[in-house]
Write a protein that binds this DNA or RNA. Structure first.
Lengths: 223, 223
DNA sequence: CACAAAGTGGAAGCGTTTTTCAACTTGAGA
DNA sequence: TCTCAAGTTGAAAAACGCTTCCACTTTGTG
């Protein structure tokens, strides 16, 4: 199992490839073409493939420490005196990192599957985030119906705003985060499952009054 | 400019193409390959291209009435006795439609540019939605710092959750909507622009206690 | 029926990205 | 210095989707 070290020139090329990938993925996301990375590094595609046969290998090498940094943020947030402050602080810091790095943003949002370092890192973050939620709930700073899954939802929501506005208005995600977090504190509990019976009931009358003009409800084309 | 009617067989093919596109776009989104549509309709790609040279033409023909239906929802919501109820009712109905139709969902979320029917329809919806917001603000049912743009933000947010969970948990968007709407009502006003000076101030101390290693006093164990 | 116009199908050409490969280069140990 | 395994390269092939094109078929009218 001795991993003999790379030849000197090979190691240098590897570093160049990593740097190029780092920059491009931060700007354009994880899906940046291999060819673009190789060109930016001044190498051929063959070299890139030799070092990182799977894109996952490249992503792994690049983002391991970033993911670890986010986990560290979460751990620090868990030490905050006030659980709610800790939670909001964590979310803000996390999104600040994501705002500067589209690759990281995609990584943290996409559901990880592999057994690699990254997947474990993300799992650890999820666990810590769950603790942040639970701690805030226990302290009475969040309603008890808020669950860890709601944080993932918030992550999706704010991330979408970030994606849509990265060019146009890079700070817009802060508003989305403020709305989402306020929403967590004030949302009504989700209605318990009555969906099944709902269909047997007469469909809930449209909340707005049955049209002042006396027309009937507008026809909505069936999907 | 007399548009002579299509030959009988051509018209029949056109309908088949529309049906196929309808179904595929509802399931897979607006980007479904032309080839798949043609195959599903039992036609060749040439026929599809002859009738709908631009994808936009196809989308136009397919979604005009759906967009109009959403606008109608908004108009109806504006007639609700209670502005807040009208707003939430509208959002729920709108997303219910989107939940059943991925194409519509993409359409309403993507920024429209063209001068075609759809673009105008979307613009009309945006206008009506803005009125819904303003009406709720005037009635004191929403804080005055909430602006029409916030509704677009909510649209992005809930839409992202819908996209991520359409397979796994198709009703999850309802939770996202509840959180978002509650957030609109309870969010703090976004801080006025002091960003410029912020950098001159000592960077706001991390909210959790400043000790990364901190075995200092303020460690509050939460059992 | 005959025939011109309308309509059709699907292969070919193009562009993009992934992945492989065989010929060529180079570092470093003997 | 010599040698060869490690390393490199870029072209080529495969996969995918868009778009065009033209030989062929169908319609409906005279």
């Amino acid at each position: 199992m001795t991993e003999r070290p790379l030849r000197r020139d090979a190691e240098r090329n590897r570093q160049r490839l990593l740097e190029a990938a780092r920059e491009l993925m931060a700007r354009d996301g994880l899906g940046v073409p291999y060819e673009a990375i190789a060109r930016a590094a001044g190498s051929g595609m063959g070299t890139l493939y030799r070092r990182f046969p799977q894109r996952q290998d490249l992503v792994d090498a690049l983002f391991a420490e970033h993911v670890e940094a986010v986990a560290a943020l979460a751990r620090q947030a868990l030490r905050a005196d006030d659980p709610w402050t800790g939670l909001t602080w964590f979310m803000e810091r996390q999104f600040e990192l994501e705002a500067d790095d589209r690759g990281l943003s995609e990584l943290l949002r996409g559901a990880r599957q592999g057994t690699d370092r990254l997947a474990q890192g993300c799992a650890r973050i999820a666990e810590l985030a769950a603790q942040l939620i639970e701690r805030a709930v226990r302290a009475g700073r969040l309603p008890s119906h808020v669950v860890p899954g709601d944080l993932e939802t918030v992550h999706l929501m704010v991330g979408a705003v970030m994606d849509a506005s990265r060019q146009h208005d890079p700070a817009r995600w802060r508003r989305a985060l403020a709305v989402s977090l306020a929403g967590l504190r004030h949302a009504e509990p989700t209605r318990p499952r009555e969906e099944e019976e709902a269909d047997t009931h007469p469909r809930k009358a449209p909340v707005p009054p049955a049209s002042p003009n006396g027309e009937h409800a507008h026809h909505v084309p069936a999907p």
